[in-house]
């Protein structure tokens, strides 16, 4: 049992079912401040549903779900959870296809989100500098004024990571960031995430074992909606149950 004060995300005994199918089954997971956690598991293990629950898209049937030890996320909707500082990158890159790379980042930046504030919004020098800086990190400076739909799959992944960074959240949920990236890009992404995890908490869902290895972090294996094993990648990959699940019985 982890200390509740120190945990940024506290999931305890969470269950959710869709029409009788138990997508998440008594799942417990604790993420501490500044932790980088990798989550793996076969298809249908409940990885994406778990992210849906944390970000408020899906409400759990039972269980405790706390942020920073005392904020009950079950009572909040997606917007409030996002405002608290939980950001998310989706499995399928979701960017605003009909808007420029620049505008995608601008919309994500940690600025007031109200209607009135945005009606009279004027871009300041510091804001555009910040955007340029972010574009540099995600290597899209060249495509600043290109519409999102014209980017390649890997570039869209980068753009979404950039949007996540622009939000400046305390917890980053990153769903399959390496899909569609070249090997070099994958390695860079891992480096970037390790760097971010120095100050923030990061949860990464990924199938790419090389990527997980590069992250060099604690790994949680999900299976049928519950935690099957936890530990370093070497530890879990020697676990007989995990091997059974991945190779089939």
């Amino acid at each position: 049992m982890a200390d509740r004060k120190d945990t940024v995300l506290y999931l305890d005994n969470i269950s959710v079912s869709f029409d009788g199918f138990k997508a998440i089954n008594h799942l417990s997971l604790y993420i501490t401040r500044g932790e980088l956690r990798a989550i793996i598991g076969p298809n249908g293990a409940g990885k994406t549903t778990m992210m849906d629950i944390i970000t408020g898209k899906t409400k759990p049937d039972t269980g405790t779900l706390l942020f920073n030890g005392n904020i009950d996320l079950k009572k909040l909707d997606e917007v409030s959870i996002a405002e608290l500082g939980i950001g998310r990158k989706f499995q399928k890159p979701t960017i605003f296809e009909n808007q420029t790379v620049y505008d995608n980042i601008l919309l994500s930046l940690d600025n007031p989100r109200g209607v009135i504030a945005n009606l009279g919004y004027v871009t300041t020098k510091s804001t555009s500098d910040k955007i340029d800086e972010l574009l540099e990190i995600i290597r899209l400076t060249k495509y600043k004024n290109l519409e999102g739909s014209n980017l390649s799959h890997g570039q869209k992944q980068w753009l979404e990571i950039g949007m996540l960074l622009a939000q400046d959240p305390d917890v980053l949920l990153v769903d399959e960031p390496a899909a569609g990236m070249t090997d070099a890009e994958t390695a860079d992404t891992a480096k970037l995430l390790i760097n971010i995890a120095k100050t923030k908490s990061v949860i990464v869902v990924e199938h790419d074992m090389e990527f997980i290895r590069a992250l060099n972090s604690k790994v949680t294996v999900l299976h049928e909606g519950a935690v099957l094993a936890e530990g370093s990648l070497d530890q879990v990959s020697k676990n007989q149950e995990v091997i059974d699940v991945y190779l089939g019985r």
């Binding site: 950001g87 960017i95 605003f96 296809e97 009909n98 505008d103 989100r113 945005n118 919004y121």
Partner: peptide, 25 residues
Amino acid sequence: DSKYGKALIAIRDSESRVRFLGYRV
């Protein structure tokens, strides 16, 4: 053309994404 309008187009194209960015759609 304002940032409000940009957010509006973003909502049109991907409503849930805008929500996860913290906008009250």
